[in-house]
């Protein structure tokens, strides 16, 4: 009478197919867009607070056609590129040193930890005093916002290199610097790449912050100006654009990382 039934399988950690993964993700986007559409076209929400999706797109389109969007984008991308590059170029070698040498760690780690807890926002007025409101100030804010986090994360990446890898280098009579270059750095590279990818996302926030407060160009600047003229459509369009740019950057970094570190990620 009572045939034994198979217990339902646990879904914890079970993968789903690529297609249904993608379909689910897109569905969520579409659903949110739909809610937005209904709220705005039915008149429940006033357009001054939330314009319709069509209005936002047409607003962006106008700005794209007259070149404003393009100029803003170029100005912001340039600042991110330079600011983030300087921070990363400094963080990797310093993180490598403090992750390997106790003296470096003692000298730098507590200091960085201290600075890391100072709110980046509080540095905005100071950096304007120091460097004005030009690109240099944006670089500085991006640097302060990312470098101190990156250093600690890279240190952590480096410390995860197995002790015996270093032992191997020593039994092969390599010098400390050779061990760092030939064993520790390549071994920590997949982790460092992830650190770079994650902190790149944060640096967008610091850029827009700096541009909101004091700038004459850039995505953040346009958002402030639009607020003055109640152009909610532009504000929302730019925020969506920022999200979209971040998503693309992240996906590109992920795909690149997978290619670059194919061997390491298979464990």
């Amino acid at each position: 009478m009572n045939t034994p039934r198979r217990r339902p399988q646990s879904r914890i950690g079970q993968p789903i197919s690529r297609r249904s993964y993608l379909a689910t993700s897109i569905l969520v986007f579409v659903a949110i867009g739909l809610v937005w559409f209904v709220l705005t076209t039915s008149g429940i929400v006033s357009p001054i607070f939330l314009p319709s999706p069509g209005k936002v797109v047409s607003q962006l389109w106008t700005l794209a056609l007259n070149g404003t969007l393009w100029d803003d984008l170029v100005a912001s991308l340039y600042r991110i590129f330079v600011g983030f590059l300087i921070a990363t170029a400094a963080a990797i070698p310093i993180g490598l040193m403090i992750g390997n040498f106790a003296r470096w760690e003692a000298a730098i780690e507590p200091l960085v930890d201290f600075i890391r807890y100072m709110p980046v926002t509080a540095f905005v007025p100071l950096t304007i005093l120091w460097t004005g409101t030009g690109d240099m100030q944006k670089f500085t804010i991006i640097f302060i916002g990312t470098f101190f986090q990156q250093v600690l994360m890279v240190m952590d990446n480096v410390k995860r290199v197995p002790r015996d890898f270093i032992g191997l280098g020593r039994t092969l009579d390599l010098s400390d610097m050779q061990i760092l270059r030939r064993i520790v750095l390549p071994s920590a590279m997949p982790g460092i790449w992830d650190t770079v990818r994650i902190t790149l996302g944060w640096s967008w926030t610091w850029l827009v912050l700096a541009e909101l407060v004091a700038a004459t160009s850039g995505l953040g600047y346009r958002i402030t100006v639009s607020q003055r003229y109640f152009q909610t459509g532009t504000i929302i369009g730019y925020i969506l654009l920022l999200g979209f740019l971040g998503l693309i950057a992240d996906q590109v970094m992920k795909a690149l990382g997978k290619r670059l570190f194919r061997q390491d990620t298979q464990h």
């Binding site: 197995p162 015996d164 890898f165 032992g167 191997l168 064993i183 390549p186 071994s187 590279m189 570190f261 061997q263 390491d264 464990h267």
Partner: peptide
């Protein structure tokens, strides 16, 4: 030769 695997993965 170590007990842990020490081949460099890359």
């Amino acid at each position: 030769v170590f007990q842990s695997y020490t081949l460099l993965p890359w």
